[in-house]
Nucleic acid binder design. Sequence first.
DNA 1: ACAGAGATCATCT
DNA 2: GATGATCTCTGTG
Length: 181
Amino acid sequence: MASGLPADPVGAAEWLIGSTLSHEGAGGIIVETEAYRDDDPASHSYKGSRAGIASMFACAGTLYVYRSYGLNWCLNIVCRPGSAVLIRAIAPTQGLERMRQRRGVDDPRLLCAGPGRLTQALGITGALDGVALQHSPLTLAPRSGGLEVVSGPRIGIARAVDRPWRFGLAGSPFLSRPFPG
DNA sequence: ACAGAGATCATCT
DNA sequence: GATGATCTCTGTG
């Protein structure tokens, strides 16, 4: 990939921490991600391609956006066919006022702390599902300096809970939940 | 602070 | 008919 996204979702999830993600002037710094691999029982792609998740089997850099629990949109970036990284939280830096309006809350810590919240704050919907990142209204800028990344068990899944494939920026107040330890 | 329930829908059994 | 990679509100300690 042009952006240097690792093909392995676990490496990509860690790599994405600290990157800047924005959509039409609203966005911030990615502080929380999760990796989902095609050989991973917790992944939508585990049982192979089927209707509704086709974009997860597209080429690296494709956006996979799906609806969760009937109401929330969740944003993933495919890093290899069948494997993707779920963007779980960002530290809001641009377009604060716009995001507050869309979310209907004032507390900046509640603007983008969670996969459903961040898509709502940025105005991301299923319309972006299957679109290539570089041809989408989304902008992704890799991190510049080093930073401390922590990892832990993923959230909200029933299978393969033991895999520590959730990554976060150490000490960030914008995480959807704190990391154990 | 923590626990439980409801909202809502594509996909699967 | 059941199941989620969720969020919010409400009731209780």
